[in-house]
């Protein structure tokens, strides 16, 4: 199964890259932006046909390596 996960910075963690992207967008004329937060996206093809089990495996990966829970949250967004 292919499991997709996104990792985002927690709310109170400063995201300087997001800030610069916001400023650049503003300079380009995109004036309707409140905030930009940058994150990571993973697509992991696991050797598991049961969606629940596949999700568990990727959650385990997120907890142990893909995300650092001091500053980041993760979310499984798709399993197919």
């Amino acid at each position: 199964m292919k499991v997709s996960a996104i990792i985002t910075l927690k709310k109170d963690v400063l995201d300087p890259q997001g800030k610069v992207i916001h400023q650049t967008l503003d300079g380009m004329g995109f004036k309707d932006v409140n905030e930009v937060r940058q994150g990571k996206y993973f697509e992991i093809d696991v050797k598991e046909n049961d969606p629940q089990k596949a999700q568990k495996i990727v959650e385990d990966m997120c907890n142990k390596l893909l995300a650092n829970l001091v500053i980041e949250n993760y979310k499984i967004i798709e399993i197919q």
């Binding site: 963690v13 300087p16 890259q17 610069v20």
Partner: peptide, 16 residues
């Protein structure tokens, strides 16, 4: 910090 031996994390420098 990533191995959990000391607390916290090191982020990108404030002014990139």
């Amino acid at each position: 910090v990533e191995s959990g031996l000391v607390p916290g994390i090191l982020l990108r420098n404030k002014y990139l």
